[in-house]
């Protein structure tokens, strides 16, 4: 009810609480993403960052709260929301190639039910192939498109996953730890691709683990520790003494901030 008439807000969350069994992981979160911005969700381990994305995407049940995308429920706007899951959740031994994975992102609606060998019958197929190819090119993976996914390096895998989201051509891209464990080259490729999205007016929300790089890569920050600790423009939030205090000594990578 609070969230109606918000068609300009790509993602708004009100009163969201999530529990793992009876253990609260996320408590009474109120937050909105700013259209056309890049937001980092940061917080200590177990702060509920991944859970928040999962709850927004209806992957985990919520105890309470309302979630709206452009003022509508997820089911109404599913194709406009793209998601890049954590790399750990994937079986990298699975027999698919990079191209297969990106094609999944490009596939839409009825195309899911048309076998690939009958692709020429579908008028939408040409567009899909084009979107998949240009997404692969955008992350510089065209040369590796026929490699089995398991034979790629961690960074290359992450690029393929971003390409899958790009191929979907959504307006809101949610990413779970996109920069975790990738090489410097991939970091640059990812940042550039995400910046290109916001330049087109699209919105990016990413769970991020490295406080040092938040300010240079993101516009906005949401600090979570089961509850919302702080939110707003990156520079303001990071300068906040309570935020500094939260991260001091909690993890080595966060300790550098103080």
């Amino acid at each position: 009810m609070i969230l109606r008439e918000q068609s300009g807000v790509p993602l708004s969350i009100a009163g969201l609480s999530v529990a793992y069994r009876a253990e609260p992981v996320l408590w009474n979160v109120h937050w909105s993403a700013r259209a056309g911005s890049m937001t980092a969700i940061v917080g200590p381990n177990g702060a509920g960052k991944t859970t928040m994305l999962s709850a927004a995407l209806e992957l985990v049940p919520r105890l309470a709260g309302e979630i709206r995308f452009w003022g509508q429920p997820l089911s109404a706007v599913r194709e406009r929301v793209a998601f890049v899951p954590q790399r750990e959740s994937i079986d990298w031994d699975f027999p698919v190639t990079a191209k297969d994975v990106v094609r999944m992102g490009a596939t839409r609606g009825a195309s899911w039910w048309i076998p690939s060998w009958a692709r020429r019958l579908s008028p939408a197929a040409k567009d899909e192939i084009h979107r998949a190819d240009s997404a692969l090119a955008q992350v510089h993976m065209t040369d590796f498109q026929d490699r089995p996914i398991g034979e790629l390096s961690g960074g290359q895998q992450q690029r393929v996953f971003l390409a899958r989201a790009l191929a979907q051509d959504g307006d809101l891209i949610l990413l779970d730890e996109p920069f975790a464990g990738v090489d410097a080259g991939t970091e640059d490729v990812l940042t550039e691709a995400l910046r290109a999205l916001t330049a087109q007016g699209k919105t990016v929300v990413a769970v991020h683990h490295d406080l040092d790089t938040v300010a240079e890569r993101f516009d906005d920050v949401l600090v979570l520790n089961r509850e919302v600790v702080a939110q707003g423009a990156a520079s303001d939030v990071l300068a906040n003494p309570s935020v500094k205090r939260l991260f001091r000594g909690s993890e080595p990578e966060f300790a550098t901030l103080s």
Partner: peptide, 25 residues
Amino acid sequence: ARAEAHRPPRPIAGTAPGTRAGTGG
């Protein structure tokens, strides 16, 4: 959770420094 959901808490940072951050739910 349902009882608290319509009372947006003020962000902890800047209001009540420090202590509440770790107490969670």
